[in-house]
Amino acid sequence: MGPQFILLSLFLIVSCGQKSSSVKMGVTTRAELVAIKGEPLKEEKIPIKEGQVMFYENDEKYQLKGDVVVSSFKAPLGDEQLLIFWKHKFKDCLTISKSLDKIPGSHTPHEMELACPESGQSVIYTQGSDLISRLVEYEVR
């Protein structure tokens, strides 16, 4: 029993010792984000009160308001890139679909945002496209 017990304990210690990698919008603090993701590649202020964005590898960005992470922007991976994937995921949600402000002077079609406010998730895609370009998570208010 003895060695097996030690082995099991070790396993538990290892598994319990692994840090949770989930960042919770409206909850995770700056320090916690740095503990999870490491130091950012750069930080930039944004034109909102106490607002800044932290840039990470793989085009991940985290927006902070004061000391708290309030939203994140990530590149979708695998099937997450499919617009239909998100239409399926949001099918029981009261979704909101709206076009984002057009880049002044640009003549590519509008960027659209399909949001599920109750889950604090939205996806960005270009009108007419079958793929999304960004995954957005934000604090549910």
């Binding site: 009160k49 085009d59 960005k61 402000d101 880049i103 945002e113 960005i124």
Partner: peptide, 16 residues
């Protein structure tokens, strides 16, 4: 590079 964030009203802003 892309600057993206949610503004005070919760609108997504994306600026190159």
């Amino acid at each position: 590079y892309l600057k993206e964030y949610k503004d005070e009203s919760g609108q997504t802003v994306r600026q190159w």
